[in-house]
Nucleic acid binder design. Sequence first.
DNA 1: GTCTATAAACCGATAGAC
DNA 2: GTCTATCGGTTTATAGAC
Lengths: 185, 185
Amino acid sequence: MARTPVPGTRDTILTAAAGLFYRYGVRAVGMAQVVEVAGCGKNLLYRHFPSKAELAAAYLTLARRERERAAAEALRWANTPAEQLIALVSEIAESTRRPGYRGCAFRNYLTEFPGATDEPAQVARGYLADSRAVVDRLVSELGGDALLADRIWLIVDGLHSGPPEQARVALDWITELVRPSDQGQ
Amino acid sequence: MARTPVPGTRDTILTAAAGLFYRYGVRAVGMAQVVEVAGCGKNLLYRHFPSKAELAAAYLTLARRERERAAAEALRWANTPAEQLIALVSEIAESTRRPGYRGCAFRNYLTEFPGATDEPAQVARGYLADSRAVVDRLVSELGGDALLADRIWLIVDGLHSGPPEQARVALDWITELVRPSDQGQ
DNA sequence: GTCTATAAACCGATAGAC
DNA sequence: GTCTATCGGTTTATAGAC
């Protein structure tokens, strides 16, 4: 008889890989390292993820789900478009201050693999494009123009790339931009 | 006497390495690729650069010199601090629109090697710190406060990380920030 | 003989196959 | 879980110019 497959093995492997990929970079981490941390055999890893690219794609997809979960949670108490924008940026700002923060997983991947068009790159670009679309939609609902959306996205980009100290500066600025009446409050 | 050493060999190697490192990333490029493009043997490469880390450090130092040369050129016709800030950001904005632009070489390295403290990482962090200090000084001379400096640096970070289309948005915004009298012009 | 330049050899790590 | 063929950075031999 076959041995009972341990449930959640895929998640165990993916969690281990995600932690390593985010912390050290996808290129820097070998499959051997992943199996070591996951505590399983190589065999099992390649059963669940046929290639490193697919594992990286799964890692970014997991990261996307986490980001979307956090965003949805942040939006629970936000009603107006302005409050929603502030809530989203506030969530990002908080995440940059958490220990172990190493920048945006999607931007990092695209920096590690410039010009890549493989599955992980598509996941990364897809997330960034969709995030940008959300900003555009909220700014539009707010009554803002394309310039305001561009500026907010510029700050979001800077927020992801710069040091965590910039988080508050970025959040305050966004708040000022989407709630002009609160200027100098 | 020994065989006539080809002059400029070091520069040839460094130029080849710099092009490859910037285009594909330091991690993605092997020493074999460098010697292939440089058209020399491995031995000669290791004679000039004892390790890949030293070659990477030389690459970033070269990039720094190029950035500083471009910055000095941009500053030639700028007299006031405001004009100088605009000139510097304008130069960055132009560089992001040049074909082959793949982001900031220094930020890219730090993304590729998170937490690194080796020589190239020191060169990268040193350049970014010095650049930030220049912004702080100019904003101070301008009569601006720490918040303005933080905001300008936030835009500069976003400008380096985002797509080239953001270049004009960033430049216009900086112009508006340092020359308040021109608002709505 | 000393130096340059090339090529081959090293050894650990790599992705992946069985 | 072991094996392999490949590739990583690095080093050592070899061929050739002065």
